[in-house]
Amino acid sequence: MIVRLEVNGERRLVDLPPLTRLLDALRGPLGLTGTKEGCGEGECGSCTVLLDGDPVNACLVATAQCEGRSVTTVEGLGALDGRARETGGLSLLQAAFVTEGGAQCGICTPGMLIAAEALLRETVDGANRKPTDTEIREAVAGNICRCTGYQRIVDSIAQAAALRRRVSPADWVRENLPFAKAEGTRGLL
């Protein structure tokens, strides 16, 4: 079955059995392996992507359901952030996970970032306010992390929320992310 969808802002087409998991379409023909599989049954949240802006577990979504819809994966976070060109390809949220200890082994990170992005769109972008700690914990409650104890994930998201409203990203990166600057992480995308 041919399915047309928009992935990270680009129009894409896949030809797959209709019940193919969106996760397999992304990791297979679409070549986006940033989205991870941790359990295959919607419990761990590692495969979280945005489907028309809402976080979903890509292991539980059939590709056929995505006809004409838009999908955002971790690969699209920096690219979709209008200011990311100034931050070496990282969105503020991604950068905060690097500096604040939000990512350790990194396997839950793509899903965690997507869940957090949905929250920031709702609170910071939508309502122009910072999310509370409880809101942050609720937003990522479907994303299991075994490394961090979650404290530094909560802190990373809170910091990104604060910065997404105020500072110019370029200034922030200059101060906080010399590595990203030096290594030119833009090339990674």
Partner: peptide
């Protein structure tokens, strides 16, 4: 000093290659 994690950027943009990738 809590310098930025050296393997952090590749992990947050999804280019870090785990075995199944």
């Amino acid at each position: 000093t809590s310098v930025p994690r050296t393997d952090g950027p590749s992990k947050v943009v999804g280019t870090a290659k785990y075995v199944d990738d």
